[in-house]
Write a protein that binds this DNA or RNA. Structure first.
Lengths: 138, 138
DNA sequence: TTCTTAATTGCAAATCGTTTGCATTTACAA
DNA sequence: TTGTAAATGCAAACGATTTGCAATTAAGAA
């Protein structure tokens, strides 16, 4: 957390009330959250949706937040963990929308081959798994 | 194509002018298309955006069309090929949104392991690659 | 062919998620 | 303490998608 505010200060961004609160919410919920979920989790709801979006945009460009799109169109935001670059995937329950973080990743050799074969540069991927979680299997 | 109209008739859906035209467009462009791109490709522009969306919804529930979400929020629609179930992935240019269809898929053994490890059933995945296409590399 | 009816369409208005303009407030360095 | 750029709230703007409704049309029945 404190390194987050340090990071902000270093880029001459201000540590404001709303912004600090948003960071706490993200830190307390290690899952991708929609803008509305973030707003709802904020203490006295004393922060505008526009501010949530502006914060997400700022934090995303600073590499401190990642944006995901699951089955519905809505964007979801998740804090990038300590040290790592935040690249990981999710297993989402199609019934209850429960999310599990997944360690496995798409094999790098295959991705390299795909990039090379098609002449694309800086190739990355987005990968999500969908299924029915243990609870929802009845 | 003809099996598509047969399929529609069998479910007592009508083969109307707009609908037939939309199917032709999808057939002629084996890429995921946005609603606007479909509309723009229609002959005399004699079809409403709402009709495009309603058609996509119908065809999707009939399993004749698949819906994708790439980096931008916009939905893109693609006709499911003959016989196959339409499962495949895409390599998308982050600059011009050009799309290449990808034959490679996420290794099934790893997916099985993920499903088992987490107790999920009927696990599938969505996988998209992003990068800069040859043209956009200057 | 004509009739009947449910399916489909166009149009406009409504909705949803997200962004932006602007005047006001605020963090923080000098 | 003060000056200034950054950040905020609010409302309006936006783009994608959906929906209500009255008018149109495909396709089977008569």
């Amino acid at each position: 957390m404190s390194d987050l505010t340090g990071r902000l200060r270093r880029e001459s961004r201000k540590i404001t009330g709303p912004r600090a609160a948003i960071l706490e919410i993200l830190h307390a919920h290690p899952h991708p959250l929609t803008s509305r979920e973030i707003l709802a989790a904020l203490p006295k709801d004393h922060c505008d949706l526009a501010t949530v979006y502006r914060s997400m945009h700022l934090l995303e460009t600073m590499g401190m937040v990642k944006r995901y799109h699951f089955h519905d169109g809505a964007a979801r935001f998740e804090l990038v963990g300590e040290g790592d670059d935040g690249h990981h995937h999710h297993l989402v329950c199609v019934n209850c929308s429960g999310v599990v973080e997944i360690a496995e990743c798409f094999p790098d050799e295959i991705q390299k081959r795909i990039a090379q074969k098609n002449g694309y540069k800086n190739v990355t991927h987005k990968l999500e798994f969908f299924g029915t979680c243990p609870d929802c299997q009845r």
